[in-house]
């Protein structure tokens, strides 16, 4: 599935699968000012990210606005074979979000 906001990669080696995800998101803290207008940029950040492997939840996260812009996540789980899929979902404080899946290589 092509996704606009998520770059997802999963690679298996020695019985372990490493997932790398890059999510395109401004991650505004609500404390930054617009350079031109001088007004505060409203808070806008990803609240949660979930990763699934074959319908089994591998990772659930709760995030705050102090995660860097365009969050990058990397983690490893046991099992996983080439050709199987992993799925990643994010959801932000405005209720927006996206799901992407990738084939393990």
């Amino acid at each position: 599935m092509a996704s606009k906001s998520i770059k997802l990669k999963a690679k298996t080696e020695n019985g372990e699968t490493t997932v790398k995800a890059l999510i395109k998101h401004p991650m505004e803290t609500g404390r930054r000012k617009d350079k031109d207008s001088g007004e505060l940029i409203p808070i806008h950040y990803i609240k949660e990210v979930t990763c699934k492997y074959q319908d089994e939840t591998v990772l659930t996260t709760e995030l705050g606005p102090t995660i860097s812009k365009n969050p990058f996540l990397s983690f490893t789980f046991s099992g996983g074979a080439a050709g199987e899929t992993v799925e990643l979902t994010w959801l932000d404080n405005k209720g927006e979000g996206e799901t992407a899946s990738a084939t393990i290589s």
Binding site: E56, T60, T61, E62, T76
Partner: peptide, 16 residues
């Protein structure tokens, strides 16, 4: 910054 809940399969390690 964040709280991570690893599932049964996941190694308790993170990069962010």
């Amino acid at each position: 910054c964040g709280i991570f809940y690893p599932g049964k399969r996941m190694k308790p390690a993170m990069s962010i």
